[in-house]
Amino acid sequence: MGLAKRIIPCLDVTGGRVVKGVNFVGLRDAGDPVEIARRYDREGADELTFLDITASSDGRGLILKIIEEVAAQVFIPLTVGGGVRSVDDVRRLLNAGADKVSINTAAVHDPQFVKDACSRFGSQCIVVAIDAKRVVGAADLRWEVYTHGGRRATGLDALEWGRRMQSAGAGEILLTSMDRDGTRQGFDIELTRAFSDTLEVPIVASGGVGEIGHFADGVLSGHADAVLAASVFHYGELSVAEVKAHMASRGIEVRR
């Protein structure tokens, strides 16, 4: 009896529609975000994450409208990320009904932004998203932070960056393996465990889920506090209820 491990479907949104990319390139089409959010809620999703993948410039208002609609019908925590650059962006998303806002590229450009957002709105609603990629040929196991949807290397050591973001006040880390994202080979367990065992704040594992056992692996081997996936849920290959039943069968505490 204790805190349940969280299962979080992720909705990648662009132009008001939900899509899922493969390695962040070549998007396949999908569906209505409000309908999908309600379906996940009925299936027992513990939270929902919306990633605005066209957040770069225009179409920014669309995600606000989607969040407003979802928040009026779905009463579980909602996290929104993608293109969040300013305290004003955070405020707009929270006012639209987001419970947590995830900051990625902008945190690397300006770590003070994370501090400002945490002191203004509280650590409980600020998630720092880290896209990490293994450093090939390094003497020890380490990962580098990438930004701009995984296109730009930063030179930052991912674990060190996670520590800094925790100190800056981040209440949670959304950790995506760029090596695994879209591959369906499972989470990068070593990456996930390195973060989970080092940091005090909860870690959401992301990137690579392709089959039902991967969720439990993320918790049992990766020590993740929450597991996130997009395409396996989105294309109906797995339901949240099936995933929870499987995790429970492997001894993991889930909300049912």
């Binding site: 969280r6 650590s123 209440g171 909860p202 020590h223 506090d225």
Partner: peptide, 13 residues
């Protein structure tokens, strides 16, 4: 024996 995170975040009894 697992380490518990702070903040206490998620669904509990």
């Amino acid at each position: 024996g697992a380490r518990l995170k702070v903040p206490h975040m998620g669904w509990n009894h």
